[in-house]
């Protein structure tokens, strides 16, 4: 039995009167790839953002390995949350690269400011990770000079450079032109093959089926059904899952 990397217990998230997440339990093992699918408004992005506490849960616990972000029903300590977040890399739909920094500077900024790595060494690390996403030759380009696919690959390199134990992908290819999706998926695929623990919120059903070890279907703030991809896609059990898969043309 491999090590548990992420543990989520009875997670609730409420925005005012609106309860977005209605009690979610999930554990993710080391090296496991979990794809979360579901209709928009199902709470899947909110759930993903709770995993690194970008959204603070209303109640419930999130643990990375054996470290909790906060005790249940207690206010989170910002410094502790920030330090635990270093273990969790995140890639956003809208890339969120720093527009005033070059690709290289984007990747090395947190190494210097947060990890306190000396500049010369940070440059080397940043170059290694840009190389890994195939953008070593674009290191001095600003985000505005890169295509969407290239920007997202820089964003992936930026997250990886912190050497996280878990990677979260929040609809990483949704903002891309169709011809640029492939290059980003390729990078994610390689990362999956290297054994990175990953949670992906995605609309790319084919990709989810190919890369994930487990598919989670969320609707109405709960996990409706989960399973191993082949069974999940060929033989869904819950009527809501069947309906959804039909709608997305699976």
């Amino acid at each position: 039995m491999s090590k548990i990397m992420v543990t989520i217990q009875d997670l609730h998230k409420r925005f005012g009167e609106n309860e977005i997440l209605k009690g979610i339990d999930l554990s993710i093992s080391q090296g496991e790839k979990v794809a979360i699918i579901g209709p928009s408004g199902s709470g899947k992005s909110t759930f993903l953002r709770c995993i690194n506490y970008l959204e603070q849960p209303t109640s419930g616990t999130v643990m990375i390995e054996d470290k909790k972000f906060a005790e249940p029903n207690q206010k989170a300590n910002e410094k502790h949350v920030a330090s635990l977040r270093q273990e969790v890399g995140m890639v956003f739909q809208s890339f969120n690269l720093y527009p005033h920094k070059t690709a290289l500077e984007n990747v090395m900024a947190a190494l210097i400011t947060i990890r306190k790595i000396p500049k010369g060494q940070a440059i080397k690390i940043a170059e290694t990770f840009l190389q890994k996403v195939g953008l070593a030759n674009r290191k001095d380009h600003y985000p505005s000079q890169l295509s969407g696919g290239q920007q997202q690959r820089v964003a992936i390199a930026r997250a990886l450079a912190m050497e996280p134990k878990v990677m979260l992908f929040d609809e990483a290819t949704s903002a891309l032109d169709p011809q640029l999706v492939g290059e980003v998926l390729q990078v994610i695929r390689e990362l999956a093959n290297e054994g990175m623990t990953m949670v992906l919120v995605t609309h790319e059903m084919k990709f989810a089926r190919e890369v994930a070890d487990r598919i989670i279907f969320m609707d109405g703030g709960v996990i409706v059904e989960e399973g191993e991809p082949d069974t999940f896609f060929t033989n869904p059990k819950h009527p809501r899952t069947k309906e959804f898969l039909q709608q997305v043309g699976n």
Binding site: N52, L54, E78, K79, A82, S83, R85, Q86, V88, G89, M90, F92, S94, N96, L97, Y98, A109, A110, T113, I114, A155, R158, A159, M162
Partner: peptide, 17 residues
């Protein structure tokens, strides 16, 4: 854009940093 703050936080920055 709020995404800038979020990206930094996701990398381990505190709000102040």
């Amino acid at each position: 854009d709020k995404g800038q703050l979020e990206a930094a936080k996701a990398l381990g920055y505190t709000s102040r940093k």
